[in-house]
Write a protein that binds this DNA or RNA. Sequence first.
DNA 1: TTGTAAGCGTTATCAG
DNA 2: CTGATAACGCTTACAA
Lengths: 335, 335
Amino acid sequence: MLTNLKDSKVTIYDVASEANVSLATVSRVLNYPEKVKPETRERVLEAINRLGYRPNAIARGLASRKSTTVALIVPDVSRASVAEMINGVTDIARKYDYTVILKVTNAEQAIEDDVWQEVYASQVDGIIYLNDELTEQNIEQIRKSDVPVVLCNTTDENNVVPSVSIDFEAAFYNGTKSFIEKGRKDILLVSTRSAFSVNALKERGYVKAIEEAGLKSNIVRTSGRLAVNYPFFQEYFKDNHPEVVIAVRDSIGASLINAVSDLGIKIPEELEVLGFQNTKISKMSRPTLSTIDNPIYDIGAVSMRLLTKLMNDEEEVENVNVILPHDIIWRNSTK
Amino acid sequence: MLTNLKDSKVTIYDVASEANVSLATVSRVLNYPEKVKPETRERVLEAINRLGYRPNAIARGLASRKSTTVALIVPDVSRASVAEMINGVTDIARKYDYTVILKVTNAEQAIEDDVWQEVYASQVDGIIYLNDELTEQNIEQIRKSDVPVVLCNTTDENNVVPSVSIDFEAAFYNGTKSFIEKGRKDILLVSTRSAFSVNALKERGYVKAIEEAGLKSNIVRTSGRLAVNYPFFQEYFKDNHPEVVIAVRDSIGASLINAVSDLGIKIPEELEVLGFQNTKISKMSRPTLSTIDNPIYDIGAVSMRLLTKLMNDEEEVENVNVILPHDIIWRNSTK
DNA sequence: TTGTAAGCGTTATCAG
DNA sequence: CTGATAACGCTTACAA
């Protein structure tokens, strides 16, 4: 009769009296079960079940000064890579009994500033931060944080903030080099316009491979948006005919394939294309898009796991920069 | 000197003494600014700024018995439609100052059960629930909830749970009918296998249009997964040659286009294809996929807005079933 | 208009 | 091993 009654918020007091113990004992069986005699523990557990008691996480948070909550800050969840990463984070969060608060910034600095204030107000125990256009200002923000932060799918150049990602520079170095080894000479990199971001690392890897081979590097920077990319590519490829294009994102690679195919250029015969990320789109594209596999689910999962360690002081906060391995997946957009 | 000091958690007491008022007054300027004399209000505000005070959301939640937090329960964030919907929810949540907790169930009933317990323990003020494979059990769960729930992108057949979605039946009725009006007779619907879901509504709309026209309905049900769809379609279209295929999801439509094109069938000349959702994939597909536009961002946004009303008792909990308009977008997979 | 004080539902520190 | 009791940081009557 007491069970499941809609508005009957049952508290620890109710359980205590039901089990004929003090509330302290109930609290103990919940948090340190080994510290209470098996038979009373049993009695309390029964009372809990009978009443359908669920500890109030808010009261618990206030009293214990930890919320077992983490914030996940992302620019936009509709990007395939961030969506998949979120799955990784939430799966591991569940495993370690953390609640996750989702904050999306729409990549706007003003919102971003608010968001940091909000998550502090929420008393989160840790923060997972995904921002592939990290600025100095953002890094400063993180360093002032009194709760642990892990950068997800990015790195801090100075290794002062914990992070989880692949080695972007090596990935693009290897990707570029594999074409060079096949004898290609005219290799274009399509990157994005943005002050400072992981794309700079990708560019660096590309340039390194190109220069080592004594070739000429060639980078064009475009928007990340489909509506502007398509016409841009159609224009560009009227006059320019590289042998290979490496794109910093699959979506760019795929829209390039479409734009260029619509122009009558044959892929991979006349132009080879390599993407980055291995999203669904790379499999759905025709021809299917060869791509550098960025294990984004794992990156999310490992980030969350790392954060749990940081929150429990099992790990030093500095110099924890996890590098996950990457792969190149050859499909039909390359010979 | 007190500002920004890492571990100096400044509380309402600190602000009170800094401003020479009682903590109650500080609380008032935060919650009912009009109830405090402008000059003291000013003094308090200054103190707040000077100390960099941020109210502790947890303590506030405990005292006020509301958390200004909502839970967003989804099966999987990597599905394009749910990702975009989440953007809608978070944008509106931000506008109304709600924090959102993200719970992903991986479409597993066991996790789902846990999740509901967890969100209750979290003392959320409301729940947004996205599940396109709703069972009786789930509906039961919702009805027992003592906090408002809104179904997002689904409807409860009995209209007892608030919901926001398009009229799925009408959408597929109209989609089907538009082909019938162009003289097509052999129209196949590709749906998914699943006990009970919105796809049943889509099927119903299709069947209605077909039967009204005195044609023969034809539904095949497949998995939602790319890896199984592709070979399935290749097999199916060896022997079957409908004029039109309507798919219950863009991803199914797009993989059908790929499978069938790889078989040498010309789209739209030999087969027309209509998808559902208007995801990025429908624009990236070649030929581009005609599709029923499901305004999923808006659905998320409206759901959250509705939930705010429900949480403030501005709306009746029963019979709030918002139907958003839909559109058909004709692209190159249809004549 | 402002202050006092009693909670909110836990955890955690003492004694016993 | 268990029970009182004081926090935790805030909201909210009720008094002044």
